[in-house]
Write a protein that binds this DNA or RNA. Structure first.
Length: 443
RNA sequence: GUGCCUAUAGCUCAAUCGGUUAGAGCGCUUGUCUGUGGAACAAGAGGUUACGGGUUCAAGUCCCGUUAGGCACCCCA
C-alpha cells in the first residue's frame, strides 16, 4: 500500500510534550503578569474578512494567508492581534468599558521566509489599552514589558524608548519633506544594524538630499542620558511643529515609569528608535537582546488612528507585544526557565495481585490534586515499568506490594536517586506534595 | 517574495580523485534479568544518502528542479 507522506508546511511546527510544557510555562508567566496589571483576556476568530485585515491600504496582503472560502468570501488568517482588536472594539463598543484593557495570547500567521525565531505560525502575546490618551497607559505597557523581562530573567535586555512625533519633528528640523518621513523612519531604525553610512545611503536613495540626511543623522545620534537628550530635543524643537508636544509626552512617560517603580537602568531614550509599523503615532518602545541574535523580543507603541478606521471616530490606543517565540529562543539558549521533567508527579506500578488496591490509591491521590499516572503495562515486570517511568522522566514511582499493603503502606521510589522509602497510604499525598514542591507549574 | 549556504540511520557525524556490499559513536530492541530501572556484556533491528530527474562504464560525491532548514535582504515578534 502506498504510504501517505507525513510532512508539515514550511515555517509550521509540531510540539513535543517537552516543548509544550515549556511553552505553557512561558504563557503562564505572561498571563500572570498581564492579569497582575489588570488586563483581561479576550479571543477573536483566526479567520477574518480579508478587507478587515488589510484595511483600506491593503499593503500587507502579500505576507498574509488569504483565500476564497466555499461561499466565495475573500478571507484571511489574522496577521497580528492588533487589527482584530480594533475590529473587536468597534463591534462591541457597548459591551466594553473604556479605557479597555485586554490581553490576547493566540497564534497568528505570516507567509514570510522562516528563520531562527521567525515562523509562519507563531504565538503573539499582546496587551493593549484602548480609550486612553494618558501617558499613564503607555507607562503601564512598559511596566508589563519590564516585568516580563525580569520574570523570565532575560540577560542584558535593553528597553529603548522614543516618540514617533519626536522623530518626525527631528526630520522636519533637518529639512526633510513630510512625504519622506516614512522612509526616514525605516532608514533610521536600521542604525545599529547598517551603521551611519548605511543609513545615509538609504536616506539618499529614498530621495532625501544629502545635507538633510546628514542633519537627520546628527540629530538622532546625539548622545547623553535620557534627561539630557530630552532637554536638548526640547531646545532644538521649540519652534518645530509637534516637537514640544512629543517632548512633553516623553517627559510625562518617563516620570510615570519612575513612579511605577520601573528601574531606570532597564530603559533609555533612544532618538534613533523608529519601529517599522506605520500606524504608530506616539511613544514607541522596543526591547532587544544581544545574544542569541533574534532581533527585537518585544515592542510597544501608541496607535491613536487605527481603531478609528472601524469606528468612524478617533479612539486613542497603546499596546505591547511580547515576542513569545523569540523570548523562547533566548530561554532555551540560556536555560532560563526550569520546567518539571514530566507532567505527572508519580507513576503507580502495575502488580497483578494488587491492581484493585493500587487503583483506589491512585483515585485518592488524584482527588487530592496530585498528578498520578497509573501503569497500563500489565505484561512486563517491575524493572521494565520502572524503566518506562524513568524514560518518561516521572520523578517518583509508587510500588503497591502485597506486603506493604498489608502494613497499610506502599513503597515510594525516587527514580532519579534510586532511594526508596516505605510510606503510609494515609500520608502518601502529603509526602508526594512535599517532595515535588518547587517544580510544580505556575498557577 | 529575492540572493547565498546546507541536507547521509532516531541524534551527532564519517565515507580519499566520481570506483566493490554507505560506516562509527550514542540511542533503540532482545537476552543474561518474571518484586526493583539506569551499568556491563552479547546479539539484533534500523538507509530508495530529503525527493524527482540528468551526466557517466560507475553518483552520497558532478549538474538541474522540488521540498525543508540556516544566513542576509524585505518585513517584523
Amino acid at each position: 500500500m502506498a504510504r501517505q507522506d507525513a510532512r508539515v508546511l514550511k515555517g509550521f511546527r509540531d510540539y513535543l510534550p517537552e516543548d509544550m510544557i515549556l511553552r505553557q510555562r512561558l504563557t503562564d508567566i505572561f498571563r500572570s503578569i498581564f492579569e497582575k496589571h489588570g488586563f483581561e483576556p479576550i479571543d477573536t476568530p483566526t479567520l477574518e474578512y480579508l478587507d478587515v485585515l488589510t484595511g483600506k491600504a491593503g499593503e500587507n496582503e502579500k505576507l498574509m494567508y488569504h483565500f476564497e472560502d466555499h461561499g466565495g468570501r475573500r478571507v484571511g488568517l489574522r496577521y497580528d492581534l492588533t487589527v482584530p482588536l480594533a475590529r473587536f472594539v468597534a463591534m462591541h463598543e457597548n459591551d466594553v468599558v473604556l479605557p479597555f484593557k485586554r490581553y490576547h495570547i493566540a497564534p497568528v500567521w505570516r507567509a514570510e521566509k522562516p528563520q531562527r525565531g521567525r515562523f509562519r505560525e507563531f504565538i503573539q502575546c499582546d496587551a493593549d489599552i484602548v480609550g486612553s490618551s494618558s501617558m499613564l497607559a503607555d507607562a503601564e505597557g512598559i511596566s508589563v514589558l519590564a516585568d516580563a523581562i525580569h520574570a523570565v530573567g532575560l540577560p542584558q535586555a535593553v528597553i529603548s524608548i522614543n516618540h514617533r512625533k519626536l522623530l518626525a519633528a527631528l526630520a522636519r528640523l533637518a529639512g526633510v519633506p513630510a512625504e519622506h518621513a516614512g522612509g526616514v523612519f525605516r532608514a533610521v531604525d536600521k542604525l545599529d544594524k547598517i551603521g551611519a553610512d548605511g543609513v545615509r545611503r538609504e536616506l539618499v536613495d529614498a530621495g532625501v538630499d544629502a545635507g538633510s540626511a546628514d542633519r537627520v543623522l546628527a540629530l538622532v545620534t546625539q548622545q547623553g542620558d535620557s534627561a539630557s537628550l530630552l532637554a536638548s530635543a526640547d531646545h532644538q524643537l521649540a519652534d518645530v511643529d509637534g516637537g514640544p508636544e512629543a517632548v512633553r509626552e516623553l517627559r510625562a512617560l518617563t516620570r510615570h515609569l519612575d513612579e511605577l517603580g520601573v528601574a531606570p537602568e532597564t530603559w533609555k531614550i533612544d532618538l534613533a528608535l523608529a519601529r517599522g509599523i506605520d500606524y504608530y503615532t506616539g511613544p514607541v518602545c522596543e526591547a532587544r537582546v544581544e545574544s542569541p541574535r533574534v532581533g527585537s523580543i518585544a515592542g510597544t507603541g501608541r496607535y491613536d488612528g487605527l481603531i478609528g478606521n472601524f469606528l468612524g471616530r478617533q479612539i486613542p490606543a497603546t499596546g505591547i507585544s511580547l515576542g513569545f517565540e523569540r523570548i523562547l529562543e533566548v530561554v532555551r539558549e540560556y536555560n532560563l526557565i526550569e520546567v518539571p521533567s514530566a507532567v505527572a508527579d508519580a507513576f503507580m506500578v502495575y502488580l497483578p495481585d494488587t491492581i484493585a488496591q493500587a487503583s483506589r490509591i491512585v483515585r485518592k491521590l488524584r482527588n487530592e490534586g496530585l498528578r498520578v499516572d497509573q501503569s497500563i503495562i500489565d505484561n512486563k515486570g517491575l524493572g521494565a515499568q520502572l524503566k518506562y517511568a524513568d524514560r518518561r522522566r516521572i520523578p517518583f514511582a509508587i510500588i503497591p506490594g502485597a506486603g506493604e499493603l498489608d502494613r497499610g503502606t506502599v513503597s515510594l521510589k525516587n527514580l532519579q536517586s534510586g532511594e526508596q522509602v516505605e510510606v503510609s497510604i494515609a500520608g502518601l499525598a502529603d509526602e508526594l506534595r512535599a517532595l515535588t514542591r518547587g517544580v510544580a507549574p505556575v498557577g
